[in-house]
Design a protein around this nucleic acid. Structure first.
Length: 478
RNA sequence: GCCCCCAUCGUCUAGAGGCCUAGGACAACACCCUUUCACGGUGUAGACAGCGAUUCGAAUUCGCUUGGGGGUACCA
């Protein structure tokens, strides 16, 4: 093992909210850094000014932080290799581009978009793979000056020579490319800003990134980037390419499949812990078979070379199950804090904090999303509507049960929950022995009268939370 | 079109030549528990894409086919 410090980065482009796939890439970078005791940096790739926005940038920050994927260096926290926003680094790219020109690795190109479009069309018509014609490769100084005098601003192209390029991918293994298939590609746009491939390499080099872990949609960029590293005389980092996350129809996960942004998931009531845990399982498997694990546990067990190299499909079933598991286990005070925003259509002020926690405690069991709480806690806040249980309440059984319950409950000691529990048990036994009513039928009658439903939280808890006055009031309303 | 990546139950995966009559998780189904829904427990069903090759032996190696994904920009 070398002494080289492990430095990884996550480099989102602020042209949309933080995508769940980007979040997974961030997670794997974070896990790797943690496991290797390295640094994890955030860099904002906003070279495309038109598509980048402050709002998206903020969403990316917020989402990453909500997930707990905090960075060691980044635009807001700084670091010794900043700035960490590409738009603030525009002055450094031209220098390196010039250096490449001077060394003969790059050249100025005066072709217009129309010229280039024409080349594309011709290649298409001839059914041959497109490669830049190199029309501007051998322009003389006079020709260039003339063009510049006309006001034409050149782009800068990297000169790609034939070479068999091989690199060892951390997750895919040995990858080979024939660079003669790659045309001379642009590294600087005519407007003076760098292209993606160039900016990434310059930044990763300057930020001393040791391992580049990213989606496999970048595989075909990798040979270009390696060529640039070599021309720059820089150390080539190790690359690791992760399979993509696909929608159930095997297409790219996009908005039409539902939520794609981390913030969307949070809005629906997914817990960030569950989201992270679930997404980690897309491509990675725990060595002990225990799937529910927090980030620290996952990091300790993380082996980048054992990540699955295939794509995986994002299915909600397991995420939902996992979210439910986290909801059941979460500290009740913390859960209540998270749940309250989903209850804002109710007047929650009628209950004390303790009582609110109690309400969440007794309703959390069957839910998969925090959003479900809105419906499941309704009867604690509002008078029940009896429409759906009308039939149930009109049976002979229900009438018998409620008549007795109405009478008995007056004597219940609402400060003694255990006693209520026992009395209800006796109550069920009484009806079973006297009339042969099934215990659940007996309880259904009470539940329907008190909540307007046939399912819900524990009956004893409901009675205690509602309180004697409210219970009697609701009983009288039937 | 060309280049690249990938291929085990419906889904996520374990599996690095004999431990595999392929294991686990979610979902499904059945039963048990039970004051409802759930949780939990037990069990059932369910996969090595196809074809060749190597080998005493292949889910595991190699090739081809097929299928899926990605790329092919002065987007990132």
């Amino acid at each position: 093992m070398s002494d080289e410090k492990v430095r990884v980065r996550i480099a989102p482009s602020p042209s949309g909210n933080l995508h769940i796939g980007t979040a997974r890439t961030a997670l794997f970078n974070y896990l790797f850094a943690k496991k290797m005791h390295g640094k994890y940096v955030l860099r904002i790739e906003d070279t495309d000014l038109d598509r980048s926005s402050e709002e998206y940038k903020q969403n990316i920050f917020d989402s990453l932080k909500a997930l707990g994927l905090n960075w060691d260096e980044g635009p807001d926290v700084g670091g010794q290799y900043g700035p960490y926003k590409q738009s603030e680094r525009f002055d450094i790219y031209p220098k390196f581009a010039q250096m490449l020109i001077d060394k003969g690795y790059a050249y100025e190109c005066f072709c217009s978009n129309e010229d280039l479009d024409k080349e594309h069309e011709e290649a298409k018509a001839k059914k041959i793979p497109y490669k830049y014609s190199r029309k501007c490769l051998n322009l003389t100084k006079e020709q260039k000056d003339e063009l510049k005098a006309k006001g034409i601003k050149p782009s800068i192209r990297f000169k790609v020579d034939y070479k068999e390029l091989v690199f060892n991918d951390l997750v895919k293994g040995e990858l080979k490319f024939d660079t003669s298939l790659i045309g001379d590609f642009a590294i600087m746009k005519s407007n003076g800003t760098p292209t993606y491939n160039f900016a990434v390499v310059v930044d990763d080099m300057l930020m001393k990134i040791s391992h580049v872990i990213r989606g496999e949609d970048h595989i075909s960029n990798t040979p270009k980037q390696i060529l640039i590293y070599e021309a720059l005389g820089a150390t080539v980092p190790k690359f690791g390419h992760l399979g993509m996350i696909l929608a159930p129809d095997r297409s790219k996960l996009s908005k039409r499949h539902g939520a794609t942004a981390v913030s969307d998931f949070i809005k629906q009531g997914y817990l960030t812990e569950a989201l992270l845990n679930f997404v980690a399982l897309l491509g990675w498997a725990p060595s002990d078979g225990v799937e529910i694990k927090n980030v620290d546990e996952i990091a300790a067990d993380f082996r980048i070379n054992e990540i699955s190299s295939s794509n995986s499909i994002f299915e909600y079933e397991k995420l939902n199950w996992m979210n439910g598991q986290y909801i059941k286990k979460m500290d009740i005070s913390k859960l209540t804090d998270l749940a309250l925003p989903f209850l804002n259509k109710y007047d929650t002020s009628k209950y004390s904090r303790d009582m609110l926690e109690r309400i969440i405690e007794v309703t959390r069991e069957p839910i998969t999303l925090l959003k479900d709480l809105e419906n499941d806690t309704q009867y604690f806040f509002e008078e029940p509507k009896l429409d759906e249980v009308k039939e149930l309440l009109s049976t002979d059984l229900s009438k018998k049960v409620l008549e007795k319950f109405k009478n008995d409950v007056k004597d219940y000691d609402f400060n003694n929950e255990e006693e209520i529990h026992n009395k209800l048990a006796d109550f069920r036994t009484y009806f079973k022995e006297q009339f042969g009513f099934k215990p659940k039928e007996t309880m259904w009658a009470i539940r329907a009268a008190l909540t307007g439903r046939t399912r819900g939280a524990d009956m004893v808890a409901i009675i205690v939370i509602l309180g004697k006055d409210e219970v009697i009031k609701r009983l009288n309303n039937v």
